[in-house]
């Protein structure tokens, strides 16, 4: 395996020494570009009390291209599809090399607090959100309880 760029080493170290509240990111031992991530559901969101698992990968061209991130825990959210793929501007057209793993994870945490049904990835969920927000939030809470809570 090729040597890990200094930037990735630094970012990884800082994620461990100075972690973001509510977020963990640990590289896999056999692939230091591949992180196991957890995000706590933000307070006062339908995801509160949930612990969401994600995976993150830094492609060869990182930081010229954005990290790849996916939810591994099922979640009911208009900007996250059934396979856990995330629709978030900073992961696509608004990525900049000045951003980092931690800023991306913070943006995802913020996305949980502020679902955006006008820019959906998951159409059915977005329509549900627009049609009856309270009911959609109730479903999101149910999913959180079912899939994101350790029994």
């Amino acid at each position: 395996m090729s040597q890990l760029p200094k930037r990735i080493i630094k970012e990884s170290q800082r994620l461990i020494s100075d972690p973001v509240p509510g977020i963990t990111a640990v590289p896999h031992e056999d692939n230091l570009r591949y992180f196991q991530v957890t995000i706590q559901g933000p307070k006062e969101s339908p995801y509160q009390d949930g612990l969401f698992k994600l995976e993150l990968y830094l492609p060869d061209d990182y930081p010229m291209v954005a990290p790849k991130v996916r939810f591994l825990t099922k979640i009911y959210h208009p900007n996250i599809d059934r396979l856990g793929r995330i629709c978030l501007d900073v992961l696509k057209k608004n990525w900049s090399p000045a951003l980092q793993i931690r800023t991306i994870l913070l943006s995802i945490q913020a996305l949980l607090s502020a679902p955006n049904p006008d820019d959906p990835l998951s159409n059915e969920v977005a329509e549900h959100w627009k049609r009856d927000e309270q009911d959609a939030i109730a479903t999101a809470k149910e999913y959180t309880k079912l899939y994101a809570t350790e029994q």
């Binding site: 570009r33 990968y57 996916r70």
Partner: peptide, 15 residues
């Protein structure tokens, strides 16, 4: 070249 993990390779193939 780094090693792309299984899930991200499959996501690329799916896309």
């Amino acid at each position: 070249m780094s090693t792309i993990p299984r899930n991200f390779k499959l996501l690329e193939e799916l896309e």
